[in-house]
Amino acid sequence: MTTPLAIENLSMRFGAVTVLPDVSFEVAPGECFGLVGESGSGKSTILLCVSMLLSGWEGRIAIGGRAVRDMSLMERCRSLQMVFQDPYGSLHPRQSVRAALSEPVRIHRLGDVDARLEQVMTDVGLPVSFLDRYPHQLSGGQRQRVAIARALILEPSILLLDEPTSALDVSVQAEILNLLQRLRAEKGFTCLMVSHDLAVVDYMCDRFAVMQHGEITEILPRSAILPNAATHPYARQLIDASIAYENAM
């Protein structure tokens, strides 16, 4: 099986500021790969580059062996989707859930709109009657479920998660993470997840990269968190701080 997502020598600059000097990593099939690091370390920028929402980057990003730059818009949209950080900003305030979810189906002319909507609502654990609600009639967790449903309705092979739970309450975070785990097991998509919560990474990810100033300092397996097996001083410091914080809670 080919590598679902490979990033080679990705670099991105905004004017004089180099956000990502040179990033390379690969994500294995079915894996959930985490990106952690302090604010401004370029985690989210990687997701924007992969999704082509930012297009001024250099290097090579390939999904299943095909460069994303060579893919047509339609093909790219069906291979990768993204769940955004803030469920209050990622759903159109004047579109009902039905309108929001049927848009991608119509754009890609998949047909069978109603059946697909019902299926995806069941998948994310929302009652089908919620299709006629507007975002302001939903709670944060329900909105994030709708956002996940919208990402999954095109059946992508890669799901990009940009801190999908950081805007949510702790108990709702757990629900959303459990949902993502269950869906990943059922649908077998590959995840690339940005987070700065190591507990979330510990729960979700098989491997994770610690980033600082746009560079990957170290790629570690999940099992390295608790014994703190990191060798790079910054990664050690980050994991130590996180464990100390968890213990203090």
Binding site: M74, R76, G89, H92, R94, Q95, P104, I107
Partner: peptide, 24 residues
């Protein structure tokens, strides 16, 4: 984010303007 989401769904600029921006 909802405009980015629409772009990620493959919506054309005309569709984004008509369906997402005009109602706002």
């Amino acid at each position: 984010d909802y405009i980015s989401a629409a772009r990620l769904q493959g919506a054309s600029p005309a569709r984004i303007i008509w369906k997402s921006i005009v109602p706002m």
